[in-house]
């Protein structure tokens, strides 16, 4: 028993120090490509940390979104940036932000060290035992319509946060589209490995997404994890060179994009009219409402995330400009 605890402790210590070390290296290394690769590794280690902290839902979200999709976004952005730099004949080295005054340059590390020490002290000053809202969550689980507590918080107890969050995703896509195209003519053709990999992986990813969505009601999983896994399938297809072309601007496609946030907002409004309360799911229907909201949310999240990765505005928008 004691050796097990010791083992766990040393694992935690190792994990923690690696996290901090990786963060330091990735932020200060010369090569941006290396920095991004290390960032993905950092995300995977974070996912491990979430598992160690009994947060499997967060681990899934981190692995899929934090490490996976963010990593893919960063890598494509870097590739596009390299093309732009080659075209413009500019190169960049690791450079300090000369906007910040020279004196500041010596003082920032010191000031930040003080801030860190202060925050560390505050963290330690927290009472060692604090139930937080765990008792409230436990008491009300029976009325939430699901048996998995994180899903209950995300979709029911604090569903209003999630409603607004869906709009955050949507607004970022509208923003990306409104800035216009960032791709140069440069297109790559996938090698045979990627090709085969995609053919095998895409069906698997769709199955995994469906499973995560379904299982979210009673075990770790749910709309965001399922949506990002589904988005990963889309990203693979996009890497293969598949392009949605005109689809992006069609109404059905736009409907899928807004289905998640839209249905959420309409549900909120309807429930206000029927029950006099925003997002007050009737207990007997809560499970089915949450499942409907999560399913549409999964589709919207997947398509929005994949569209963010593509980052090309739909054609019809370009014509107007």
């Amino acid at each position: 028993m004691e050796t097990l605890t010791l083992l766990a402790l040393s694992f935690d210590a190792l994990l923690n120090l690696s996290l901090l070390y990786l963060a330091w290296i990735l932020l200060n290394c010369e090569d941006l490509l290396k920095a991004i690769v290390l960032f993905v590794a950092f995300g995977l280690l974070m996912a491990l940390a979430w598992v160690r902290l009994d947060a499997p839902d967060v681990a899934l979200a981190e692995a899929a979104i934090g490490a996976g999709l963010t990593g893919a976004l960063l890598l494509t952005a870097l590739a596009k940036l390299r093309v732009i730099e080659t075209n413009k004949g500019t190169t960049q080295q690791l450079k300090q932000d000369s906007e910040n005054f020279q004196t500041l340059h010596y003082m920032t590390p010191l000031a930040l060290l003080l801030v860190a020490i202060g925050l560390g002290y505050v963290v330690f000053s927290m009472p060692p035992i604090s139930a937080g809202l765990s008792n409230d969550v436990a008491t009300n689980m029976g009325n939430s319509g699901v048996s998995h507590s994180v899903t209950a918080v995300l979709l029911n107890f604090r569903g209003y946060d999630t409603l607004l969050e869906m709009f955050v995703l949507l607004v970022s896509l509208l923003g990306v589209w409104s800035f216009g195209s960032t791709t140069s003519q440069h297109e790559t053709t996938p090698g045979p490995v990627l090709d085969t990999l995609t053919r095998r992986l895409v069906p698997v990813l769709i199955l995994v997404a469906a499973y995560l969505l379904w299982v979210g009601a009673h075990a770790p999983g749910g709309a965001f994890q399922a949506g990002s896994v589904l988005a990963a399938a889309g990203v693979l297809l996009l890497l293969m060179g598949w392009r949605p072309g005109g689809y992006l601007s069609t109404l059905p496609f736009r409907l899928i994009l807004v289905a998640g946030p839209g249905l959420f907002a309409i549900t909120a409004a309807l429930l206000y009219l029927l029950k006099g309360q925003l997002l007050a799911f009737p207990v007997e229907y809560a499970g089915i409402i949450i499942f409907a909201l999560e399913t549409t949310a999964t589709l919207s999240i997947a398509v929005i995330l994949a569209a963010l990765f593509l980052s090309e505005p739909p054609h019809s928008d370009k014509e107007h400009i």
Partner: peptide, 15 residues
Amino acid sequence: RHAVGGWGAPLGIDL
């Protein structure tokens, strides 16, 4: 004051 979802603070969000 309106308790979103009917839960009420601290579990839910209040407007």
